[in-house]
């Protein structure tokens, strides 16, 4: 992967605990999760199974359950848990001074945001 462009999407507090919000890039929608222990993770907002919107799932531990068919994905790696195969796209994410930064690829980066 080439160099990432880091963008600032606002404070951690804007994301509900045990919840998620989305970020629309040029090519993808990204799901940004905040867990009970206030860690922040990001995945592409589509499950590898049926493109389910992961940001709408229930967040538990460092996992999210897809709202369409209850597949569980690791927020740390994107990997499907249990008997299921597949991996949700991992997006780089870091928190600096309480502000969430997302690392976008060239394709995703630099363009206007949407809902």
């Amino acid at each position: 992967m080439t160099d990432l462009s880091w963008i600032d999407v606002g404070p951690v507090a804007d994301i509900p605990r045990q919840g998620a919000r989305t970020l629309q890039t040029r090519t993808d929608r990204i799901a940004i999760f905040r867990t009970l222990d206030d860690q922040v993770f990001a995945l592409l907002d589509r499950c590898p199974h049926k493109q389910g919107p992961l940001a709408q799932g229930i967040v538990h531990g460092h996992f999210v359950t897809c709202p369409l068919h209850n597949m569980v994905f690791s927020l740390e790696t994107g990997a499907a848990q249990g008997p299921d195969d597949g991996c949700a796209g991992k997006v780089e994410c870091r928190v600096i001074d309480g502000i969430v930064h997302i690392g976008l690829t060239d394709l995703q980066a630099g363009l206007r945001h949407a809902g």
């Binding site: 462009s5 880091w6 963008i7 600032d8 999407v9 606002g10 804007d14 994301i15 509900p16 919840g19 919000r21 989305t22 970020l23 629309q24 929608r29 940004i32 930064h101 980066a109 630099g110 206007r112 945001h113 949407a114 809902g115």
Partner: peptide, 13 residues
């Protein structure tokens, strides 16, 4: 309200 609005891209580094 957070449910129905995406996050903004505030600034790029």
């Amino acid at each position: 309200a957070h449910e129905f609005k995406g996050l903004p891209m505030i600034a790029a580094e």
